[in-house]
Design a protein around this nucleic acid. Structure first.
Lengths: 135, 135
DNA sequence: CTAAAGCCTCCTCTGTAGGGGAGAGTCAAG
DNA sequence: CTTGACTCTCCCCTACAGAGGAGGCTTTAG
């Protein structure tokens, strides 16, 4: 009935280290311990593991996932919390994407400018004329 | 003529810690040391500091900036290297942006789906029906 | 019975750019 | 001469999700 950490890891397609880590930080607690201290898991551990991965895949961090699971374990429906989280994360992503896009555009224009410059006319006093210290 | 670290930091608008760190990793070496071991800098340290910041601002890392500076200090023109770096960084950014955009789209669609779901019909066996473990 | 494989805890390390603070030496002004 | 500001080196800490390994039990197969 109960499986040990190695079997769970293998069936989940992950490492023992990861499962142990999830136990430690509280996203996937071992249901119980054997007499000798071995972690024991039931079938549902596999589902829970998949949930953790699915949540990670949409950009949630383990700390947030732990909170979702804690809510659920207290018998509350974490949906509201999750929707909030998702909304905020999407907004953060928008901001981050805009930042990166601006950076990329700057890099591209630097690149174009650099191709028009003659390396031999590089000012020896500057480190590199491609990168403008804006002065 | 020579200024000490505190003056440089203040004129550069940064912290002494940062300047010391730049010295240590080699992006902004102190020109010399006083008899008592104090770092001494000339006026050009300010320019070099600005270059470092400008390079950071376009997304280069200090390790890369150090290489650019090392090239320059060996008397070579780092332009080619910089152009390469910039090109690669831009490509990386494109990939990263695409990744984040895909994630954001998934979050948005999750969000829309969640709003249509009734929280009261949440399957108690699942942690949260908003996040689909695919399975 | 024994060796191999599995499991345990605890510790350190990864990358990035520094921040915080201890303990000690140095420099200028009063 | 002393006090306070400045500087030095050295060491630990941050976020994130584990990976790697040491040293020591436990379990299982032959």
């Amino acid at each position: 009935m109960a499986m040990r950490i190695g079997e769970l890891a293998e069936r989940a397609g992950t490492s023992v280290k990861t499962i142990r880590y999830y136990d430690r930080i509280g996203v996937l607690k071992a249901e119980e311990r054997s007499e000798s201290g071995y972690r024991l898991y039931g079938e549902d551990a596999l589902d829970r593991y998949r949930f953790v991965r699915a949540a990670q895949a949409v950009g949630l961090r383990l700390g947030e996932i732990r909170e979702i699971i804690a809510l659920r374990d207290r018998g509350e429906t974490p949906c509201g919390f999750v929707v909030d989280l998702i909304g905020r994360r999407a907004a953060e992503l928008d901001a981050r994407i805009a930042e990166l896009a601006a950076l990329r555009d700057e890099l591209r224009s630097l690149d174009r400018r650099a191709r028009r410059l003659d390396p031999r006319r590089c000012d020896p006093r500057l480190v590199c004329h491609v990168i403008d210290q804006g002065a």
